[in-house]
Nucleic acid binder design. Structure first.
Lengths: 252, 252
DNA sequence: ATTGACGCTTGATGCATGTCAACTTGAGTT
DNA sequence: AACTCAAGTTGACATGCATCAAGCGTCAAT
């Protein structure tokens, strides 16, 4: 027991240089001594639990957050409890980039499952980036990547139908998980159907029906949050090109 | 005539320190001598004309572009000529930020009317930013701002109906033009109905019908590309809150 | 003027997907 | 087990908007 506790404690405060995510995350491309410098400004807290907030819309911006383990959703809370899910964030992904501009968070971030999070105080980070060109470059790349992904989402929401949207969501999860050393065809979704629907601009019921249909068509095996992808290339096909079948709404 | 030519030539190559956009653009917050340094790396070409490309999807990324006068659209070209409009860019706005990550443009940029464009070679810019902290900070802010605007669009495409979308588009144009010293209630749209539709995830016909309806309801006076906003606050209302009337689809 | 092309508008129709409602399932509590 | 509550599923129905189709103003080239 004591043993177990020690291991878990260690896991939480593993330094960047020992972190398996360093090739996806801020330290990418940095010299070892610069990784140490970056490491020295990062705060690592105890793990957060399902429903805990990293920050809420309206709060002052002080730090960026990086998922180390677990997953996080960002969302724009609206009056009357409704919310638009803006993104799901997996290990190595940075949260809070949209708040740099106004020094104030416009959206909220909530962890979807027990998660370890690295906090990066932004002001100190900025000083460090000025001194380490490769860190500055990596930061530009990460900001740019975020913009590119948002453009992909605009395309998805602007032009794709429900089937294509869910297929795109699943293949995207598959490839992101795969990059993190997990199976691209067998995984657990940490978000609810409702959250998936909000993210994709669809009603829960539509998402649910599509999961059923994909299963009937032999593309997936689904049990609650557990998804097994049986035909990944068919899903990728569906996500990318317009549906080969007859109907083609929204070809604006 | 010679006189006229000289003036126009002068207008094109006006330096950052004399540019009316400096408070919206990269030079914001820079000391005069740093503005000079930034200015020295910027290339200014002859004006581009309607339909000219700044860059096309697939091309190597070398420079960022800033609109000085006129307007530009970015779009993701798809097979079979269809395109998703990703954004419209007014003077002072930066184009190409999404390409830093992959060093390759994922979208295309085309000018909508005769426009003057400043080209910012990115590598030299990056060196300069490393040496000028306030320039680095401004660059982070601009990247972050872009991410925040994309989130607004995700919300629009994910949750808003056609009426709310067009109202949001018009109020956004109004406020952006107003920041540039133009009338917030009387302006010309440089893009076609088709492009507006693509941007908003709507069919051309829907956009056209909405313009007609807004006019019937006394919100606008429209003549081709010329728009006079008669009731700005009503439009803002409509863009923000769900429609006060009965129906409310897409309240996922 | 005439022509043609293009962008815009308007009407008629249909479908994809939202909405409403009822039921099932699973997980936690007593 | 029985109860509770939230999440998910499924069916029936309604509707907002896409699609199809036709007509109209505008502009440029002839």
């Amino acid at each position: 027991m004591t043993q177990r506790k020690v291991i878990s404690f260690d896991t939480i405060r593993v330094a960047c240089k020992n972190c398996s995510l360093s090739q996806l995350c801020l330290p990418m491309g940095l010299a070892p001594e610069d990784v140490e410098r970056l490491d020295s400004i990062i705060k690592r807290s105890r793990p957060l639990h399902r429903g805990d907030h990293l920050f809420r819309g309206g709060e002052r911006f002080r730090s960026l957050y990086v998922v180390k383990t677990g997953s996080v959703k960002t969302y724009a809370p609206s009056e009357e409890g409704g919310e638009q899910v803006l993104g799901f964030h997996l290990p190595g992904e940075i949260i809070g980039l949209d708040a740099i501009d106004k020094s104030c968070h416009a959206c909220s971030a909530k962890v979807l499952e027990t998660s370890a999070i690295c906090e990066v105080p932004f002001q100190r980070f900025e000083e460090l980036a000025a001194a380490i060109p490769s860190l500055q470059h990596q930061m530009y790349r990460l900001l740019s990547k975020e913009i590119g992904q948002d453009a992909d989402m605009l395309l998805l929401l602007g032009k794709k139908n429900a089937e294509e949207r869910l297929a795109a969501f699943l293949t995207s999860m598959s490839s992101r998980l795969s990059k993190r050393g997990l199976s691209p065809t067998d995984f657990y979704l940490s978000m609810s159907r409702h959250e998936i629907g909000s993210y994709l601009g669809l009603a829960v019921e539509t998402v649910s029906r599509l999961f059923t249909r994909f299963q009937e068509d032999g593309l997936l095996r689904v049990d609650r949050k557990h998804v097994e992808v049986l035909n990944l290339s068919a899903l990728e096909m569906m996500a990318g090109a317009p549906p080969s079948s007859a109907h083609k709404q929204r070809s604006n």
